[in-house]
């Protein structure tokens, strides 16, 4: 992967929260037009890396480049016109309607003297339609289900009209149907030409939707590439410490991880019926 072509690059970043160093000297170049998914066990630094790429966490060392320019030197609004983020656990302000929340995604395109424009109205309409929440426009965000709410937050990020979209565990806390709904929506956004970078917990989901997988462990990138090349039995063992079989997904043919049965004292197989 050529770093020069990449819209978003982590260049030798060291990432830390206060005194806790999560990753040292980490490199990653996001392939243009890819749906890149970062996977790895809890605490491996995948969300931290995404935060650094979205400049919500400043690297202690190294730098993040957006279209070749250091992201921390750019005006915050200019970054927000090129890169949107769906964070974990955003807070919906009290008594806000879906339409108003999505309209806040237009903030980087507005100014003190220009608080609304035709382009704003068009972008909000398009974002509401793309996420299929336009009929919820007048509803309060607090009254929505978890799946609807996630789509509304995604709509807010879409209203920013950026080519780059970063998603931090977008399916966490959703039931399986809503997870698929959100992932299908992401796949459609990718097919329309956006570059997506997501952190996902579910390995099978990641293998199914990603064009490019990045596997992390202990703050390092262990492997990256097409899902079929990355998701192998040895790699799952190395990254997650899990013995598994990798079989083709019967629906899509992408690799699917099936954990091996283990005999654990007290588990179902071991129980003696009294």
């Amino acid at each position: 992967m050529n770093v020069a072509d990449s819209p978003l690059v982590a260049d030798g970043v060291t990432l830390a929260y206060d005194r806790l160093v999560v990753a040292r000297d980490l490199d990653l170049a996001v392939a243009p037009g890819s749906f890149t998914v970062i996977i790895g066990p809890n605490g491996c630094g995948k969300s931290t890396l995404l935060r650094a790429l979205a400049r919500t966490l400043a690297p202690r060392e190294g730098r993040v480049l957006l279209d070749g320019a250091p992201i921390d030197r750019m005006r915050s609004k200019d970054v927000a016109k090129r890169l949107a983020l769906l964070p974990q656990g955003p807070i919906a302000p009290e008594a806000i309607t879906v339409g108003d929340l999505v309209a806040r995604g237009r903030y980087p395109h507005q100014g003190i003297l220009r608080q609304w424009s035709a382009a704003d109205a068009r972008a909000v309409d398009a974002a509401l339609r793309a996420t299929e929440v336009d009929d919820l426009r007048e509803r309060f965000v607090s009254d929505l289900s978890g799946g609807q709410r996630q789509r509304v937050w995604l709509a807010m990020a879409l209203a920013q009209e950026t080519d780059l979209l970063l998603l931090d565990e977008p399916t966490t806390f959703l039931d399986i149907a809503h997870q698929v709904e959100v992932m299908d929506l992401c796949a459609r956004l990718h097919a329309e030409g956006r570059t997506l970078v997501a952190v996902l917990h579910d390995l099978n989901q990641a293998a199914r939707y990603a064009t490019h997988l990045v596997a992390m462990r202990d703050g390092r990138v262990v492997a990256q590439g097409a899902p079929a090349d990355v998701v192998t039995e040895p790699l799952v063992q190395e990254v997650f410490g899990l013995a598994s079989r990798v079989v083709p997904d019967p629906e899509t043919g992408t690799p699917m991880v099936v954990p091996l049965r283990r005999t654990v004292p007290g588990s179902v197989q071991d129980q003696v019926v009294l």
Binding site: R51, A54, R55, T56, R75, S76, K77, D78, V79, A80, K81, L83, A84, L85, P87, Q88, G89, P90, I91, A92, P93, R104, G105, Y107, P108, Q110, I112, Q115, W153, M156, A157, Q160, D168
Partner: peptide, 23 residues
């Protein structure tokens, strides 16, 4: 009054606010 709009955005959490370009 100048601070009203950025403050509204900051209410959504620091990450979401940074993402739309508020310091």
């Amino acid at each position: 009054l100048l601070l009203t709009r950025p403050l509204q955005v900051v209410e959504m959490g620091d990450e979401a606010a940074t993402a739309v370009g508020v310091r």
